[in-house]
Design a protein around this nucleic acid. Structure first.
Lengths: 157, 157
DNA sequence: TTGTTTTATATGATATCGCATATTATATTT
DNA sequence: AAATATAATATGCGATATCATATAAAACAA
């Protein structure tokens, strides 16, 4: 077991719970990998929630707030505030839905669309580097697993 | 493409960027899956960062702050404050390292260890349910991928 | 030793986040 | 139609998270 207790401290690995725990592995992998890219976008003056909003809108413009919040992995009230800031910066615009005026739909401005495009390009490049760095060839398989997982969890709750 | 424009809105899927983007898949899967369990622990009056600290200490008691922060996926200054609260609640104790008195080592109290044990039991049960719900048999493979990914990212930066 | 640099943690100020609820609009019931 | 219920977004506030830096100890250099 405890190989070498003579060296003072730290880095045991042993039979921990967390390092075999699916949710921890997911959170940890996500945290570390995203961390890399998040530094990159901070460099472009964009915060994580903003990047998520931009990416989601680029895929699907004019989403309503609640829906967009789900996709961008944040709370509705927080998205509302993020949208306020992004509106001030001229990245998005609000437009209330004609058919149901409770709904507010969010659209990319020209400026926002350009920025989103740039960031997506950077993200793609980063993803490519990352996958190469990981030296993994079963990426498609993993992505498939994650997609199915997401789909299941979205529908079952 | 746009099957049926007669139905008012939403749920397009199409050729989005994000739903094939590794970092988004990871973040999303983590968010959704962890969300389930996080509700559970909130019910036990425990917050997410606290749960992480408890689990990490249970695996490896007496870690120093900086190290623990990395494992618990949070910032050092935030961990310091979390430790303050957990100390007040009698879940952990600080003890400064004899050999190097800059270092502060965090230990579970009896109460903390019990709580950690309970939560780990709950987490295991939840994980089992989750994996069954997902109907996945290649879990081991996915865990392997994630572990390798984490290891790579931890070492390469 | 003394001065300088590096490392580990804590602190204070600020921004973000999330909960509860207010507001406004639509649906439903009577 | 009026009353009630439900839905979508916004708002206020308290908690949390983060940044920059302070404090303190150790390592290193002179």
């Amino acid at each position: 077991m405890d190989a070498d207790l003579n060296e003072i401290d730290t880095h045991e690995k042993e039979s921990g719970f967390v390092d075999g725990y699916l949710l921890y592995l997911l959170a940890s992998a996500s945290h570390l990998a995203s961390g890399q890219f998040h530094e990159e976008i901070r460099g472009a003056g964009v915060r994580v929630p903003e990047w998520r909003v931009l990416a989601c809108l680029r895929d699907n413009d004019g989403q309503m707030v609640t829906q967009l919040a789900r996709f961008a992995l944040m709370e509705q009230s927080h998205l509302t505030k993020t949208i306020d800031q992004m509106t001030e910066r001229g990245l998005v615009t609000r437009r209330s839905d004609e058919a149901d005026r409770r709904r507010v739909r969010i659209f990319l401005s020209e400026k926002g669309r350009e920025l989103a495009g740039q960031l997506v390009t950077q993200a793609s490049a980063h993803e490519e580097r990352l996958i190469r760095q990981l030296g993994m060839n079963d990426i498609a398989q993993v992505k498939g697993f994650l997609s199915r997982m997401i789909e299941t969890l979205e529908n079952n709750e």
